[in-house]
C-alpha cells in the first residue's frame, strides 16, 4: 500500500510557527483540512508529547506527530508541514525541527504498511533536507513519492 494520498490540503510549505505546539497544530490543521481527522486531534498529538516528552522527533530535523487511533480519526492520513524557521522540541539529539509530519491512523493493525512506506522515503538520509528546502506543494509530493 502506498502512503495515504497526499492532497494539497495536507501540505503546508514554509510555515511560521512560534514553538513546537504551534508547529504540531499546523500539522493537525492539515490533517483536518484533508479530511483525515476532527480538529480535536491536534490536542491529542500535543498531549502525547506533553505526557511522554519529545520522542516524536525521530530523526535530525524531523518530528512525526501522532496520537493513538480514536474517535478523532476519520481515515488514515498523513500531513507534511515545513517550517520557515525551525522550532525546538527539547530533544537531546535531533533538534531543531524543520519538518513536522502529522500521522493519523484508524487502526493499529493495518498501520505498519503506511509506516513501511514512510521508512522507504526517509531511510534516504537526503529526504529531510530536500523537504526542508522544497519551495512548493508539488516538490513535496514528489519527495513523498506520490506526485500526481
Amino acid at each position: 500500500m502506498p502512503l495515504p494520498t497526499l492532497a494539497e490540503s495536507a501540505i503546508i510549505v514554509g510555515a511560521e510557527a512560534d514553538d513546537w505546539r504551534a508547529a504540531v497544530r499546523l500539522a493537525g490543521r492539515a490533517l483536518f483540512e484533508s479530511g483525515a481527522t476532527l480538529p480535536g486531534y491536534s490536542d491529542e498529538m500535543i498531549r502525547m508529547i506533553d505526557e511522554h516528552g519529545p520522542y516524536v522527533v525521530i530523526a535530525p530535523g524531523l518530528a512525526l506527530a501522532h496520537a493513538r487511533p480514536g474517535p478523532d480519526v476519520l481515515a488514515d492520513g498523513l500531513a507534511v508541514v515545513t517550517l520557515a524557521t525551525p522550532v525546538v522540541f527539547g530533544h537531546p539529539h535531533n533538534d531543531p525541527v524543520s519538518v513536522v509530519l502529522g500521522l493519523a491512523i484508524k487502526s493499529a493493525e493495518t498501520h505498519l504498511e503506511t509506516v513501511a512506506e514512510l521508512a522507504n522515503v526517509f531511510n534516504d538520509s537526503s529526504a529531510i533536507s530536500r523537504l526542508t528546502t522544497a519551495a512548493s506543494v508539488a516538490e513535496i509530493q514528489e519527495i513523498l513519492g506520490n506526485a500526481s
Partner: peptide
Amino acid sequence: ICGSGIGSSGILKVNAER
C-alpha cells in the same frame, strides 16, 4: 516501544526487521 504503539514504534519495527 513508543508512547502510542503506532507511528514511531512502527517505524522502529519495520527498520529493525530490515
